[in-house]
C-alpha cells in the first residue's frame, strides 16, 4: 500500500471515529443523569475509592487487602466512565472536537482539578510525615510500608478522575429546547 493511500485511510478512520464520538456527545443525557442534584452527587463519589484506598493502606498485607484494592480499582474505572458520560467526555476528547466554549470549560476544570489534586497530595504528605514521626517515636505506624503503594495508587486514580468530577459538578442544565 502506498504512503498516500495509507494516509488517506488513516484520516478517514480518524474522521469516522470523530463522527461517532461527536454523535455520542450530542445525544441527550439519560433522564437520571440530567438533574443537577444527581450530577453533583455523582461528582463527589470519588471520595469512596479514596476512603477505600486509605482503609486498604491501614490493613495488614493479606487477601482482604488485595480484595479491597481490587474493589477500589474497579470502582475507580466505573466512576471514571460514569463521570465522563455525565460530563459529555469533555475532558477526554481532542481539541479538534471542541468549540471555544467547551475548550474554555475544560481548561477551567483542569485548573480547579489541579488545585484539588495538589490539596489531596498535600494531605497525603502530611499523613506520611505524621506516620514517619509515629514510627520513629512510638514504634507504631498509621500505614504499613506496603500500604503506601495502595494509598498512592488510589490517589493517582482519584487524581485522574478529578477533571471529569469538576466538569460534572459544574455542568449546567442541558437545553431541552435545542431547536427552539
Amino acid at each position: 500500500m502506498s504512503t498516500e493511500n495509507r494516509a488517506a485511510r488513516m484520516s478517514r478512520l480518524v474522521a469516522d471515529k470523530d463522527a461517532r464520538v461527536q454523535d455520542h456527545r450530542q445525544r441527550p443525557l439519560p433522564a437520571w443523569l440530567a438533574g443537577r442534584g444527581t450530577r453533583r452527587a455523582i461528582a463527589v463519589l470519588p471520595v469512596l475509592p479514596l476512603a477505600g484506598g486509605l482503609v486498604a493502606g491501614t490493613m495488614a498485607d493479606s487477601l482482604a487487602r488485595t480484595t479491597v484494592m481490587v474493589v477500589v480499582v474497579t470502582l475507580c474505572v466505573g466512576l471514571l466512565l460514569l463521570l465522563r458520560q455525565a460530563s459529555r467526555m469533555l475532558d477526554a476528547v481532542p481539541d479538534r472536537m471542541l468549540d471555544e466554549r467547551e475548550v474554555g470549560e475544560r481548561d477551567n476544570a483542569h485548573r480547579r482539578a489541579h488545585a484539588l489534586t495538589v490539596g489531596l497530595l498535600t494531605v497525603l504528605v502530611l499523613v506520611a510525615i505524621a506516620d514517619g514521626v509515629m514510627r520513629k517515636t512510638g514504634g507504631s505506624s498509621l500505614i504499613d510500608g506496603d500500604g503506601w503503594i495502595n494509598v498512592t495508587l488510589t490517589a493517582m486514580l482519584v487524581g485522574a478522575m478529578m477533571p471529569a468530577a469538576v466538569l460534572t459538578w459544574r455542568g449546567s442544565e442541558p437545553l431541552d429546547d435545542l431547536d427552539g
Binding site: Q26, D99, E100, R101, E102, S172, P174, L175, L178
Partner: peptide, 10 residues
C-alpha cells in the same frame, strides 16, 4: 458558525 448547538444556547 462552527460551534456546538449548546454553545449558541449559552
Amino acid at each position: 458558525v462552527g460551534v456546538n448547538a449548546q454553545t449558541i444556547g449559552f
